[in-house]
Design a protein around this nucleic acid. Structure first.
Lengths: 196, 196
DNA sequence: AGCGTAACCGAACGATCGGTCGGGACAAGG
DNA sequence: CCTTGTCCCGACCGATCGTTCGGTTACGCT
């Protein structure tokens, strides 16, 4: 492996360009022609680096899923009081969302039209399910309010967390990933009001 | 207008079918052929009722936007303490989302590829902006926590509310629109934890 | 210098896209 | 019974879709 790198595309660097276009136009709304314009190479050249359009999608959502499932393997997500583990997972989810923003954004928007999309949705449901179990454990410990049903509350928590991909832009200063994670944990666990 | 109705499509009834398919496959992922299969009429017959595919999209998002902007005209959204008005708008947003689910779902997913989509995004931003102003007023009143920036907190509140379209299904009993609205208001304003 | 191959290109493939067109079936009103 | 208009259809349009192919360029290695 030589230290100098040629000024050419790798599957990874091409993926970075493609994912950005996918997020701007939507996966189905993006043609290979769009990708070729954005990448600055011809349409046919794309197929030298990746097998297909769907291959690009698979690589992208895999990266996002790896990031999310990696959270559950971390020590603070496995040991300790359930409510504390849930807070930790919440914080880390926001951090992963911001760090891997375009890839997770794409993952959260797949509709299930192809095999790859259905596989992505299935794995994502798997992740959600594991966090939901953590949530229920915290309710059983009496650390989370029981007057709102667990599944419903979990979904709303996920809604708040996942909405980060709709507006977070890393180039805007004053709110990096961990700072946003703090805000999410504060609001989700303690609410908006001052008088609680 | 005759009281008896023939067993045929109207622009509205056709729209209901189309919007459902749009939400399942995505707007760009839906062809007129898909719509014709779902509606049970030929592709060309669709054009007897509506002008174009984009016309269907415009009708759908218009209906959603009308529902949302209608909230701001209601009395409880216009008079009273800002924090109470914000709670009311929050509750009503969830109720409108659940009542007009497929139309609002479509609105929240447009990407801006066509003029209609860009117009929809603009109007939606307008609505968000008005609610954000209400939010800031409640912060100024001291009724909402000031340690999390207003714009950020507003976005997270919207994230929680809008996530309803990702999982709410009216056919599932035990959680109708107003009940979900209660849960959202409780969690958003008072948080998940018991010990606050 | 010469060779092998990574990187790229233009042209074209069959399929499908959104949309158009001329005409047929059928019920209502006279 | 005949007209009128609604509703629907199959056939077709040019454009664009994702992908393939044969061939060219240019770099790394010896």
């Amino acid at each position: 492996m030589s230290a100098v790198k040629r000024d050419t595309y790798t599957p990874q660097s091409l993926l970075a360009v493609a994912v950005q276009v996918f997020n701007e136009r939507g996966y189905d709304g993006t043609s290979m022609e769009h990708l070729s314009k954005a990448a600055g190479i011809s349409k046919s050249s794309i197929y030298h680096h990746v097998a297909s359009k769907e291959d690009l999608l698979r690589r992208a959502v895999s990266r996002a899923l790896d990031g999310l499932f990696g959270i559950l393997d971390e020590e603070h997500a496995r040991v300790g009081r359930a409510v504390e583990r849930l807070e930790y997972v919440t914080r880390r989810m926001v951090e992963v969302l911001t760090a891997e923003l375009p890839y997770v954004t794409l993952l959260l928007r797949v509709r299930g039209n192809t095999d790859t999309e259905q596989w992505a949705m299935e794995r994502r449901r798997e992740f959600d399910h594991q966090v939901a179990e953590l949530f229920e454990a915290a309710v059983a410990d009496g650390d989370l309010r029981a007057d709102v049903e667990g599944r419903l509350a979990t979904r709303l928590l996920f809604g708040m967390i996942n909405s980060v991909v709709e507006w977070y832009r890393p180039e805007v200063r004053g709110a990096d990933g961990p700072a946003v994670a703090d805000a999410v944990v504060q609001l989700a666990f303690h609410g908006l009001r001052t008088d609680t």
